[in-house]
Amino acid sequence: MATYAIGDLQGCFTEFQRLIDLIRFDPMQDRLWLVGDIVNRGPDSLSLLRYIKQAGDAILMVLGNHDLHLLTVAAREAKNLSNDTIQPILDAPDREELLHWLRHQKLFHSEGQYAMVHAGLLPSWSISQAEQLAREVECALQQDNAQELLSRMYGDEPNYWQDEWADYLRLRVIVNAMTRMRVCTSEGKMNFTYKGNLQSVPSGYFPWFNVPNRVSQNTTIICGHWSALGLHITDNIIALDTGCVWGGQLTAIRLEDRRVFQLSCVQ
């Protein structure tokens, strides 16, 4: 039995099939962890979403910003963007079944020495606090009135955390940190516009995982979202977004021995 983590898929179903063949994934014995952004921008989000749903407990995923965008468009709280490729899901006969399943996926997962989140954790959050905060969002998404959350989720403010935040402002900060953040200040103020590499991080900001004295630093966090960062592996960070949808690579890592598997993608 092995556990593999795979970077952002974004509708690249063909490359996903090639990668699971490469690692010889056996759903009867192995597990896949997916860092989110399952859908959008790539050519076949519908097939990918169906495959992951049908895999049951063999695949565990966390939600990314593109997955939440799909839910928001489906709830008519946002419009399709010009480069979205989610319309086949919205037109599918099993649309409601797929969207219901997606709404019931995790925002954050912790297991043993590892945790997984799409984008990152604010420096003041412990792993146990992150689990509790993610659960608040997950519960809101799973309610019959989830449209209320989806209608209030978008926005860059507040861009920092306070324990006193309440209601939808609180949930927005949690979502933004876990699905959109790349860099923040040492105090945890987030910058959502920066998408560049490590060498060009704006003055006063850090990659979220390099903030001094980050509370969660004793757990190895698996993440994606930051394609300009590329494959980035340290003792306590495994960043796996290698830009498959942009013609980069699709990356998997076997957690038991940290062996990396990659294949080239067609843009």
Rank of each mutant, 00 (worst) to 15 (best):
C184M: 15
T242A: 02
E164R: 10
D26N: 07
I23L: 09
R95M: 05
R41V: 00
Q132F: 10
A130N: 06
E131H: 06
R95L: 11
D235P: 07
G11R: 04
T219K: 05
M61W: 05
D235G: 13
F16S: 00
V260Q: 11
F206L: 02
T251R: 10
D57E: 12
W33Y: 05
E136W: 03
D144E: 13
Q249E: 15
A58D: 06
L141I: 03
S82N: 14
S47K: 01
I38D: 00
D241I: 06
I59T: 13
Q54P: 12
L99T: 09
G11C: 07
A119Q: 00
L70W: 09
E96W: 00
I86F: 08
A115V: 01
D30K: 08
D84C: 01
W208G: 06
A75K: 03
H118K: 02
S126Y: 05
G36K: 06
A177S: 12
D26L: 02
Y51P: 04
Q10D: 10
T85I: 08
T234K: 05
L231M: 04
K189M: 14
I237C: 04
H104N: 13
L99V: 08
I238G: 05
V266N: 14
D94E: 11
H232M: 07
D94L: 01
T219C: 14
E77S: 13
P207I: 09
L68G: 04
L141A: 10
F261C: 05
D21Q: 15
A239P: 06
V39L: 03
N40K: 08
I59R: 07
A177E: 02
V245P: 04
C184W: 13
K195V: 13
D8G: 01
Y168D: 00
S126Q: 04
K79I: 13
P202Q: 02
I174Q: 07
D37E: 07
L150A: 02
V266W: 10
D84S: 03
I59F: 10
Y194K: 03
E15H: 09
M153Y: 00
E77K: 14
Q267G: 08
L169V: 14
T220S: 13
I221Y: 07
K79P: 10
R258N: 15
C244N: 06
L49R: 01
